[in-house]
C-alpha cells in the first residue's frame, strides 16, 4: 500500500471559497468590532467633528452658538497670543522631554542593578505619577511660595519662583519632570528586563565593559521603549495642563507659563471668558501639531529601532 507523501505546504483555498468564507464571517467580524468602533466614533471622531464645528461659531455657553465662518481662525492665527502660547509650549517640551527621559533612563539603570533599597525606590519614584496632579500642584505652590514657602525656608532665600518671568517656566517644568520621571523609569526598567541575558553574557565574554555593554547593547535594544516613552512624553508635554494651571492659574507672570493647553482652558472657561470658538481653533491646531510631531518621530525611529531581541 502506498502512503501518499505529506504535502510540504497547506492546500491553498480557491479564491471563490475565500470570498464565500469572508462573506460568511463578516457579520461576526462586525459584531466583534462594534464596541471598539462605537467607542472610536463616540469618543474620538464625533468630538473632533463637534470641535471643528465649534471653531466656526461664537459661543459663550449661555446664548445659542452663532455661525461666524472663519472669524475665529483669523483671530487666533493673526493675534500674538496663540503664537506666544505655542512658543512657551515648545520651550516647556524642550525642558521636560530630554530631562525626564535622561533621568528616567539613569534611574532605571541604577534600579536594575539590584542594589539595596531598589524595591523601595521603585515605589517612591512612581508615587508622584499616581497622585492627583492638581493636588500636587497645590502642594508645590506652597513649596514655591515666596513667603513661608518650604523651598525658600530651606534655602534661606525669598525667591519669587512662580512670579518671576525668568523662573516660572523652569519651576513648572521641574514639577512636571518630577511627577513624570517615575513613569518613564518604569518603562525603561521593563525594557532592560526584556533584554536576553545571553546577549549580555556574550558581551561580557567578548570583554565588553559596563559602559560598552550599555552603549552598544542595552541602549540600542531599548529603542522601542525609548520610542514609546518619547512619543507619549511629547504628547503629554504638549497637553500639559494640571500642574501648570494649579501653580500659575493666569498664564504666569507676563505669560511665562501660558502653555497652549492652559490657554485653551482659559479661553474656554477661565474666569468667565467662555470663548468656545477661539478655544476650539487652538485645540484643533494643537491636534494638528501633535499629529505632525508624532509622524516625524515615527519616521525618525522607524529606521533606528529594532524589535528583534533574539
Amino acid at each position: 500500500m502506498t502512503v501518499p507523501a505529506p504535502s510540504a505546504l497547506p492546500a491553498v483555498p480557491s479564491p471563490g471559497r475565500t470570498r464565500r468564507r469572508r462573506h460568511r464571517d463578516a457579520p461576526v467580524a462586525w459584531v466583534l468590532l462594534a464596541p471598539a468602533l462605537a467607542g472610536i466614533v463616540a469618543f474620538l471622531a464625533l468630538p473632533i467633528l463637534v470641535v471643528a464645528w465649534l471653531s466656526l461659531t461664537r459661543w459663550n455657553l449661555l446664548a445659542p452658538p452663532t455661525f461666524v465662518g472663519p472669524d475665529n481662525w483669523v483671530r487666533v492665527l493673526t493675534e500674538p497670543t496663540f503664537g506666544h502660547s505655542m512658543l512657551v509650549t515648545v520651550l516647556f517640551v524642550a525642558m521636560v522631554i530630554p530631562t525626564q527621559t535622561g533621568l528616567g533612563l539613569l534611574m532605571a539603570v541604577l534600579l536594575s542593578r539590584g542594589l539595596p533599597g531598589s524595591a523601595f525606590f521603585r515605589v517612591v519614584y512612581v508615587v508622584p505619577w499616581i497622585c492627583a496632579p492638581l493636588a500636587l500642584g497645590v502642594v508645590w505652590k506652597w513649596i514655591f511660595a515666596p513667603y513661608g514657602g518650604a523651598l525658600n525656608a530651606l534655602l534661606g532665600t525669598s525667591v519669587e519662583w512662580l512670579t518671576s518671568p525668568a523662573l516660572a517656566l523652569p519651576a513648572v517644568a521641574a514639577v512636571s519632570i518630577w511627577s513624570q520621571v517615575g513613569y518613564v523609569t518604569l518603562f525603561f526598567l521593563a525594557g532592560l528586563a526584556a533584554i536576553p541575558g545571553q546577549l549580555l553574557e556574550a558581551a561580557a565574554l567578548d570583554g565588553a565593559g559596563a559602559w560598552q555593554t550599555f552603549w552598544r547593547i542595552k541602549l540600542p535594544l531599548l529603542g522601542p521603549t525609548t520610542f514609546f516613552v518619547l512619543v507619549t512624553g511629547v504628547i503629554a508635554s504638549f497637553q500639559a495642563f494640571d500642574h501648570i494651571y494649579a501653580l500659575t492659574p493666569d498664564g504666569g507672570p507676563q505669560g511665562a507659563t501660558d502653555v497652549i493647553a492652559a490657554r485653551i482652558y482659559l479661553d474656554a472657561f477661565g474666569s468667565g471668558a467662555f470663548d468656545l470658538g477661539r478655544a476650539a481653533v487652538m485645540a484643533l491646531c494643537l491636534f494638528a501639531v501633535l499629529v505632525v510631531v508624532t509622524v516625524l518621530q515615527q519616521r525618525f525611529f522607524a529606521r533606528r529601532v529594532t524589535y528583534d531581541l533574539s
Binding site: D250, G251, P253, Q254, G270, S271, G272, A273, F274
Partner: peptide, 19 residues
Amino acid sequence: ERYGAALTAWKPFFNEMFL
C-alpha cells in the same frame, strides 16, 4: 455681560502693576 472676560483681560496688567 462679558464682565468675566474683561476681568481675565485686565488681571495680567494688574498683576504686573501690583508687583
